[in-house]
Design a protein around this nucleic acid. Sequence first.
DNA 1: ACACGTCAAGCGTGT
DNA 2: ACACGCTTGACGTGT
Length: 305
Amino acid sequence: MRIGYPCVNETLDCTSTSTFRLASYTDERLELTVANNLRCLLQILEWNVAHGLLFFRIGSGVVPFGSHPINTFPWQTRFAAEFRAIGDYVQAHSLRISFHPDQFVVLNSPDASIVERSVQELVYQGSMLDLMGLDSTHKLQIHVGGLYNDRELAISRFIATYQRLPEAVRVRLVIENDDRLFSLHDCLRVHAAVGIPVLFDNFHHECLNHGETMAEALRLAAATWHPTRDGVMMMDYSSQAPGERKGKHTPTLEDNLFEGFLRDLGDLDVDIMLEIKDKEASAHRACATLRGAGLLPGVPAPAAT
DNA sequence: ACACGTCAAGCGTGT
DNA sequence: ACACGCTTGACGTGT
């Protein structure tokens, strides 16, 4: 089992997704920014290893405008060595990497140009994994997309687009149940049609479900991951922010809820991404809970920073 | 030095 | 028709 957090390390003064405005795009600016982002990315991964956090979601903005036509800089060749070094580090320490392209990636849009831009964004993010030399156990996670007043048609459009994706994207793509439109049940139907793994989000499942218990839901999702091709199931973990609007993520890990979740998990192996606002602070507490339950080996005591 | 309006992209909901 | 949340920082202009 690995524990991770998304995109940003709040302890280090180093970010892997610094960017600039489209209006101020130049190749020089791009080159400088990517160089700095990759330097910080490696630094964050090193910090994670030192703290026993072996799962990390890399932000979409490592290469600013990575799928935008304005960006014709050959960053793939210019930074081949840096990407490779990061991939080597990931493999040397058995880290797991994911990407979560954001809401603009909609594979089931009825608008062909939106689908085309979405595919280009997935190609960009998948190519970073290729450049790192990482296999298909490292994933790109997206949602099924929009509803467009016709669930069946929306699902069938997703399936049709999925089948046309470039191989490098298709082998890495996974779908996550969302909190309002496409439930675990919907994702399982897409899986049944094309074999795409389902990345389970426990909090979204609490918001939108068809009566499956948490323990059942976890096992249904786990069964969609092919052990060698996809690796151990990945999931997102969060819980409701107390007193806030339904669906809002908690600002910090609630240890008692997490312990209850671990009971539902039972003996299932899973890599857990903590989608919690205070990032690595909660990830630390999750690790402590897991070590207490004997589910994680001991790690070096967190170094003062 | 600091404040704050704004930033590539989509969708559904609420007013 | 339009603003908002999603996820949030931080860019970049103006003072």
